[in-house]
């Protein structure tokens, strides 16, 4: 094949590189010989049928879950030596309620032995650059759901991660909060250009946020397609009426439907 005719996606230097990944749960195979390349500095959303292994995949990519065989490299190194930011679906079960919001955000710095003054400085800097106003002196359970998820996102960002993983970060939030936190996440991405991988169960959202949409099949899970969507940021909900948005979403939906009928 002539190099110039290859899809743009394949030309990018992969930052997250997965080869021959195997994972099964008690005899039930979810991944077998799974390969994946994800580019640096892009926001990739993962979409696929329920139970296809989206969470399992990002848990393995982030080093939270062991796999049976294969390699996962981030920036050319083993996952275990990479700095990872991870935002869980359930903020209530992932934040530390015995700490104030500020101590939660500081925690990744504290475990690395960063002195107190430096930690404060870093957090103030984060809040300012994303224009987030939050009363960090409160306990987390005193904050609204959206604010708690923001605390979780700040906590994932504070130690300057190489990759930010988010597992359905909006699914425990009401619609208004979803819009707000989604906007803040876009701001974060624009400001930092951080390689980001976000699982979504909402196709519209997956396209809206993405530079790349990773469409997964039913288990044993394959990559159906890594779809590029390069519309400029910041994006507003108006782009959902844009022809490219509609076409991309339709394309993903067609693939998804075909996959469900297999």
């Amino acid at each position: 094949m002539i190099a110039g005719l290859e899809p743009t996606v394949a030309l990018e230097e992969p930052f997250i590189r997965v080869r021959g990944l195997d994972k099964s749960f008690g005899g039930r195979t979810v991944f077998a010989g799974f390969d994946l390349d994800l580019p640096r500095g892009k926001l990739t959303t993962i979409f696929g049928p329920n139970g296809c292994g989206k969470s399992t995949l990002i848990n393995m990519l982030s080093g939270l879950l062991r796999f049976d065989a294969g390699d996962v490299e981030i920036g050319g190194r083993d996952v275990r030596s990479a700095r990872i930011g991870y935002v869980f679906q359930n903020y209530r079960e992932s934040l530390f309620p015995w700490m104030r919001a500020r101590e939660n955000v500081e925690y990744p710095l504290r475990v690395r032995g960063v002195p107190r003054a430096k930690r404060r400085e870093r957090i103030d800097e984060l809040l300012a650059s994303f224009e987030i106003t939050l009363d960090l002196s409160r306990h987390t359970y005193e904050l609204s759901g959206g604010q708690q998820q923001l605390v979780a996102i700040l906590r994932a960002l504070v130690a300057d991660p190489e990759v930010l993983f988010l597992d359905e970060p909006f699914s425990a939030l009401d619609y208004e909060m979803t819009l707000y936190v989604r906007d803040k996440l876009q701001t974060v991405f624009l400001e930092t250009g951080l390689t980001t991988v976000l699982v979504s169960h909402d196709l519209e959202e997956a396209v809206y946020l993405a530079d790349r949409i990773l469409l997964l099949s039913k288990p044993p899970t394959r990559v159906v397609e890594l779809i590029a969507y390069d519309t400029l940021r910041p994006r507003t909900t108006e782009i959902m009426a844009d022809a490219r948005f509609v076409a991309t979403k339709q394309h993903a939906l067609d693939l998804f439907r075909a996959e469900m009928q297999r």
């Binding site: 939270l64 359930n90 992932s94 934040l95």
Partner: peptide, 13 residues
Amino acid sequence: RKTRILAAKVMGA
């Protein structure tokens, strides 16, 4: 809660 333990681990604890 397993999630909190995982959260601490992924933060480098």
